[in-house]
Amino acid sequence: MVLQTLNSLGPQHGYAIAARLGQVSGGALQLNMGTLYPALMRLEQRGLLRGNWAITDNNRRARFYALTAAGRRELAKERQAWDRMAAIIHALLRGEI
């Protein structure tokens, strides 16, 4: 989800990612800082993201996270896996098998 957010919005800081996730989920997904930042760090450690300090639109310092090439590949892979999974579940629940 984090990867998808960054993919659609471009480089973003942590708060923006959380806000976006909250927004698209209609408020169902409220990420706590203790969950979000360790997750970002893990993705960074895995080389899927790169974080850098930069200045926001209203002149504040923030750490911006951007997808790396590996991250984009991973996202594509995840998406494919999900599509396949969803198709199977869909077929199952509709009794089409």
């Binding site: 800081h13 708060y15 930042y37 450690q45 080389g47 923030a62 750490r63």
Partner: peptide, 27 residues
């Protein structure tokens, strides 16, 4: 890769506490 990075983190070659805290405060 994550484990290698974490090993580096243990050895103190990663982001410092201050840096992390600043990010959280900003949030």
């Amino acid at each position: 890769r994550e484990w290698l990075q974490r090993l580096r983190g243990t050895l103190g070659r990663s982001r410092q506490d201050q840096d992390l805290e600043e990010e959280l405060r900003f949030h």
